[in-house]
């Protein structure tokens, strides 16, 4: 498809500004982070300086707190991914059924996704999970159960619950979109073959959702690797290091211990981790783009 009777408008004038801005945004800070990760720079001890090769990287690997934070990150990301995908599929199946007031129910169900993380964290911590005045403790007491002090005894679980609440609507919304594109004949054929609801789910619906599930997993993964606000407003990484994830370690290295070198090396580890996921995500997007081109 080539335009008739007109020359192409200038790439530099139209696409150029976006590309140049993003190029600066991508290269500048990353170059800075790489530079700081190879030098000794600590504001608490400004006389120390100089190029130290991989010392910052190695010191992090030798630091048990770093490994705790990696483990915490994996637990946090893995749990929230599992919860949001399973809950998202169930919610999407429910909300794709026809029932009176469905669009209203959908609006209510997607709302948590639009809540600012700071607000979500504070509302859950104080008004829902507070051991004395929280709704959950009241429910537990009414049922005669022992009361849970969430942020004292199960801090990681509490944070996982909050973030799952925020992100389940996103998964639901994506799965709803995917379910809508499912050909009705496929379901009809399976029904004629005498497939029960469970068979229908495993044989028809789940395979159809496959790509949507992959997309949700990867997109959420990239967001979850940068979780910060929810931890900052509830536990500040504690008690001890129970909820310290990689982001939080980097933040503390940089702005509590003023060790810029170590923080930057941690940052580069985070970039590497995110890029592993991003690689697969970009491949999926590229494949879809190509399919779309041939389809058009």
């Amino acid at each position: 498809m080539t335009p008739v009777g007109s020359s192409r408008p200038s790439w530099w004038l139209l696409t150029g500004p976006s590309v140049i801005l993003l190029l600066i945004w991508m290269i500048g800070p990353l170059a800075g982070a790489l530079y700081f990760s190879f030098v000794r720079k600590n504001l608490m001890n400004p006389r120390l300086s100089g190029f130290v090769w991989f010392d910052n990287y190695i010191n992090l690997l030798l630091d048990p707190v770093f490994w705790t934070s990696i483990l915490n990150t994996l637990v946090l990301v893995g749990s929230v991914l599992a919860i949001t995908v399973v809950a998202g599929i169930l919610l999407a199946l429910l909300m794709s059924e026809e029932f009176p007031g469905r669009s209203f129910a959908r609006l209510l169900a997607i709302s948590p996704f639009f809540v600012m993380p700071v607000v979500a964290a504070l509302v859950w911590k104080n008004m829902l999970m507070h051991p004395v005045y929280g709704i959950l403790s009241w429910v537990q007491r009414s049922l005669g159960l022992p009361v849970t002090d969430w942020f004292q005894d199960y801090p990681m679980t509490a944070i996982i619950l909050i973030i799952s609440w925020e992100w389940t609507p996103f998964a639901m919304l994506v799965f709803l979109t995917s379910l809508q594109s499912m050909p009705e004949e496929q379901r009809e054929a399976a029904r004629l073959d005498g497939a029960g609801p469970l068979q229908m789910f495993y044989r028809i619906i789940l395979p159809h959702l496959g790509q949507a599930i992959a997309a949700v997993l990867m997109i959420e993964c990239i967001f979850f690797l940068s979780i910060y606000a929810e931890i900052f407003t509830t536990t500040s990484g504690g008690p001890g290091t129970a909820t310290t994830n990689l982001v939080y370690v980097i933040y503390k290295r940089g702005f509590n211990e003023w060790n810029y070198g170590s923080a930057s090396a941690g940052g580069i580890y985070a970039v590497i981790l995110a890029n592993i996921v991003a690689f697969f995500l970009i491949r999926l997007i590229a494949r879809n783009m190509k399919n779309q081109e041939t389809w058009k």
Binding site: T15, S18, V19, L22, W25, M26, G28, P29, L30, A31, G32, A33, Y35, F36, I222, L225, S226, Y228, L246, V247, I250, Y251, G254, Y260, A263, S264, G267, I268, A270, V271, L273, A274, N275, V277, A278, L281, I282, I285, A286, M289
Partner: peptide
């Protein structure tokens, strides 16, 4: 071009926190 633009969005903010802060 499109894929490259999308990929810039996948950079974790914390990775570049310090250089941006210093800048």
């Amino acid at each position: 071009t499109l894929l490259w633009m999308i990929s810039t969005k996948m950079m974790p903010a914390v990775g570049v926190l310090l250089p941006v802060y210093i800048f």
